[in-house]
């Protein structure tokens, strides 16, 4: 399936004097080069899915976490890595931590992904809440990463330029 963007383009005035907008689908076959210039290649799925460009740095390798003496509910294996999101500007990589949380045993099928503004919290072992523990118990992993404005990330302010 190919993602199709729908940029809003003004199309004159309506009978009541208000401006109306029409949506024009744009895809790789669109001949309007001005529109393509603005919407094409925003995300390259091939590049995003390229594992070789992640340049993964292991900050904390797989280890058990979350179990208590009383119960194994919420017991997980976790790994903390830092990945290269992209070379945002020439010579400037945008790297971000990612915490991977999987059930204590077995291979998960699918995962829940979310982000946090508190990047520091990613460095600590994640303690699943009741809902997340239920996901893990049913073989669904968790992936947590940092979602934060570039100019508020220590050492990354230059990326915003």
């Amino acid at each position: 399936m190919e993602t199709v963007f729908f940029p809003i383009q003004k199309a004159g005035s309506a009978s009541d004097g208000t401006e109306q907008a029409t949506q024009i689908p744009v895809d790789s076959k669109t001949e309007n080069s001005d529109l393509k210039k603005n919407v094409d290649s925003i995300f390259s799925t091939a590049e995003i899915s390229d594992q070789s460009s992640l340049e993964t740095k292991i900050l904390l390798d797989w280890h058990p976490a979350g179990a208590t003496r009383q119960t194994l509910v919420g017991a997980t294996r976790q790994k903390l890595v830092e990945i290269n999101v992209a070379e945002w500007w020439p010579g400037q990589d945008y790297r971000i931590p990612v915490r991977l949380i999987v059930p204590l045993e077995g291979k998960s099928q699918g995962f829940h992904i979310t982000g946090t503004e508190e990047l520091e919290s990613l460095s600590k072992d994640f303690k699943p809440n009741a809902f997340e523990a239920k996901l893990l118990a049913n073989g669904v992993s968790l992936v947590m990463t940092g979602i934060k404005a570039l100019n508020t990330i220590p050492g990354k302010q230059a990326l915003k330029q």
């Binding site: 995003i48 594992q51 993964t56 990945i83 945008y94 991977l100 992904i113 982000g115 992936v143 990463t145």
Partner: peptide, 20 residues
Amino acid sequence: MTQMRATTAAYAEVAYFGKG
């Protein structure tokens, strides 16, 4: 971009993450 690349990072762990 961060979330999409994190997805790629998860699937790189083939021993732990299956498709789903």
